[in-house]
Computed example of a mutant assay.
Amino acid sequence: MIDHAHDLVCVREATERLLTAVAKLDDESVATPSRLPGWSRGHVLAHLARNADALVNVLAGRPMYVDAAARDADIERDAPRPLEAHLTDLRESAARFQEAGAVPGDWSRTVELRNGVTDSASRLPFRRWVEVELHHVDLGIGYELEDVPEEFTERETGFLADRFAGHPDVPPTRLTDGTRAWRTGRPGDAQETSVTGAPADLLGWLAGRRDGAALTASGGTLPALPPL
């Protein structure tokens, strides 16, 4: 069962880790490329701030973004800012999200995100946690998938395995880190590929952050995953 209050605490802790790390940068390093193609670190930070506000919109029953063009324009507008402006925006937008999460409401209700995607309101804090953890890694400033909390790694691996479950382009696949196991891909085929690896490598592959070279596939080749 999803515990949104627990996840809000995890978001706050992850945000503090992010802010502490980003505060050690300078204006020049914020402008350098991140690990995401075409995005500087400033783009990643701008996206994180605007994503917090977008999730506030969702909690309030408003559209997540006006439209895709407006979302992209906001990120491009904010990306070139100096470090202090990014830090202030990250802190203030994170506070707005926490305040929205503290408002009593029906957390079992269905909410709409981007592109017609729907989910339970109770999962929004976890979705925000995903944004903060993975984009902290995307900054390329010394925080790696091996550094994220174990709980996060396990839950996000399961979430992404569920996301690809039933996908016609992903063969039946069993994932395991040697302790836990998940299944994903299309159903109905007798042949199942087994993919084994360290927790961080499994998560990185599922999340599109690693190429899977550190994983071992048996019973078939390592599946090519569609973009998230």
Rank of each mutant, 00 (worst) to 15 (best):
I2V: 15
H4R: 02
L8R: 00
L8D: 04
A14D: 06
A14E: 06
E16W: 13
A21D: 14
A21C: 10
D27K: 04
V30F: 10
V30W: 09
V30K: 07
R41K: 03
G42D: 07
L48P: 00
A49T: 04
A52I: 04
L55M: 14
L55N: 10
L55I: 01
L59Q: 01
A60C: 10
A60G: 08
A60W: 04
G61H: 07
R62K: 15
M64A: 11
Y65R: 09
A69G: 09
D72V: 09
A73R: 11
A73E: 14
D78K: 07
P82N: 08
L83R: 06
E84I: 05
D89E: 13
L90A: 06
S93W: 03
S93Q: 02
G101V: 00
A102H: 09
A102S: 11
T110W: 10
T110E: 12
T110I: 15
E112V: 06
E112I: 11
T118V: 15
D119Q: 14
R123L: 14
P125N: 09
V130G: 15
E133D: 08
L134S: 00
L134C: 02
L134A: 03
H135M: 11
H136C: 01
H136F: 01
H136G: 05
D138A: 07
L139K: 03
G142P: 02
L145T: 05
D147C: 03
E151D: 13
E151V: 02
F152V: 06
R155C: 12
R155I: 08
E156V: 12
G158A: 02
G158P: 04
G158D: 04
D162M: 15
R163I: 15
G166W: 10
H167C: 06
V170P: 00
P172Y: 05
T173H: 08
R174I: 07
G178Q: 04
A181E: 15
R183Y: 15
R186D: 05
R186Q: 11
P187F: 14
D189V: 07
A190E: 08
A190V: 03
Q191Y: 04
E192C: 13
D201Y: 02
L202R: 03
L215R: 03
L215G: 08
T216F: 08
T216G: 06
A217M: 07
A217C: 09
T221E: 11
L225W: 03
P227L: 09
